[in-house]
Amino acid sequence: MSGLYLGVASFLLLTIVVGLIRIVRGPTPADRILAAQLFGTTGVAALLLLAQGVSSPPLRDVALVLALLAAFAAAAFVRRAWTGGEE
């Protein structure tokens, strides 16, 4: 099974890389913020598969932290990086 986990994890990383085309192209800042969403969800899935594939449970905690950070990143992007100021 570990071959499957690692294979799917690599495939997910590939979908992130391909998704980056949108981030580069934009055209609006909102389109670029989608990177946080893309990395958050897909990255968490890839890390969970990796944790199983290489039998390394601590990677699950990394996934958990990534899930938390992605949420904050999106909120921070929207508030600061885009509007460029405080509310």
Partner: peptide, 18 residues
């Protein structure tokens, strides 16, 4: 399951914010 729920809630909130 906690991780899934967290991503679900965070994703929905982030989508709304954007």
């Amino acid at each position: 399951l906690v991780i899934w729920g967290l991503v679900l809630a965070a994703g929905a909130t982030a989508a709304h914010l954007v």
